Each structure stands twice: as structure tokens, then as C-alpha cells.
Simulated scan of single mutants.
Amino acid sequence: MFYQMWFYFSRGDFRKYGKQAFIEHYEMVRSLITQERLLEYDVRDGWEPLCKFLDLELPCDPFPSGNDTDDFKTLVRRLDGIRIREAAQQHFYMLAAVAVAAVTVVLFAFLE
């Protein structure tokens, strides 16, 4: 599902259309929300602008930072590995079914 979403979002070529797709998405969101209800937020800014916008006190906990580029690349690699294993497993089962059918045909041919 993750890949289907990215494929649709980036018109089938993330390297070619990804940046433009994000720009268009942001423009669409900006057009739907009034300025006073819109927060253009950069997570590198931490808690302060977010809490101010939401009219909340600053939390004592440090701002989380577990969504960096390396984490994203690791996630994508992990998802790629899962997809490769699933595809290999599907092909294995298909080949196993064909092999069983072939062996069955050969055995019946020899038994007759």
C-alpha cells in the first residue's frame, strides 16, 4: 500500500515528479485553510511554534527526533526487503505447484 500511495502521489516517477507533487499538495492545503487556522511548521523548530499555535504549554519532554533521513532510508530498505521476500515466496509456491503437477503427469504417464 505504501508504494501504491507513493506511485499515485508522484505520478509513477518519484524522482521526476515528487518535488512538484509536494509543492502542489502544499498549495492545495493552503487554498483550503484560512491563514489563521494554518500552521506551516518545520519539525526542526521543536515544540515552541507548535504549542503556541495550539495554545498549549511547552512540555518538559525533549522534542522527539526519530524521523530523520537515515531512519526513513532504513524503513524503505526494510519495506523493500519485505516486498522481495513476499515476491520470492509467491514465486516459490507457484513453481512448487507447477513441479507437483509435472511430476503427477509424468507418474501417470509411466503407470499407464
Rank of each mutant, 00 (worst) to 15 (best):
M1S: 14
F2L: 05
F2D: 03
Y3H: 11
Q4A: 08
M5H: 14
F9W: 02
S10N: 11
R11M: 05
R11E: 13
G12Y: 11
G12C: 02
D13M: 04
F14E: 08
R15F: 14
R15K: 11
K16Q: 14
K16S: 06
G18P: 07
K19E: 13
I23M: 07
E24N: 13
V29G: 06
V29P: 05
R30C: 09
R30V: 03
R30F: 04
S31P: 00
L32K: 15
L32R: 13
T34R: 15
Q35C: 05
L38C: 07
L38T: 03
Y41C: 04
G46E: 05
W47K: 10
W47I: 00
E48P: 05
E48S: 11
E48I: 08
P49I: 03
P49K: 04
P49F: 04
C51P: 07
C51M: 15
D55E: 15
E57M: 05
L58P: 09
C60A: 13
C60F: 11
C60Q: 15
D61K: 14
P62I: 05
D70M: 11
D71Y: 12
L75V: 08
V76W: 07
V76E: 00
R77M: 07
R78Q: 08
R78C: 06
L79S: 06
D80L: 09
I82H: 00
R83M: 08
R85H: 07
A87Y: 05
A87N: 10
A87Q: 06
A87R: 05
Q89P: 00
Q90L: 09
H91F: 01
Y93E: 14
M94Y: 14
A96V: 03
A97D: 06
A99E: 06
V100A: 10
A101K: 01
A102P: 00
V103A: 10
V105R: 07
V106M: 07
L107V: 11
A109N: 11
A109R: 15
F110C: 11
E112L: 14
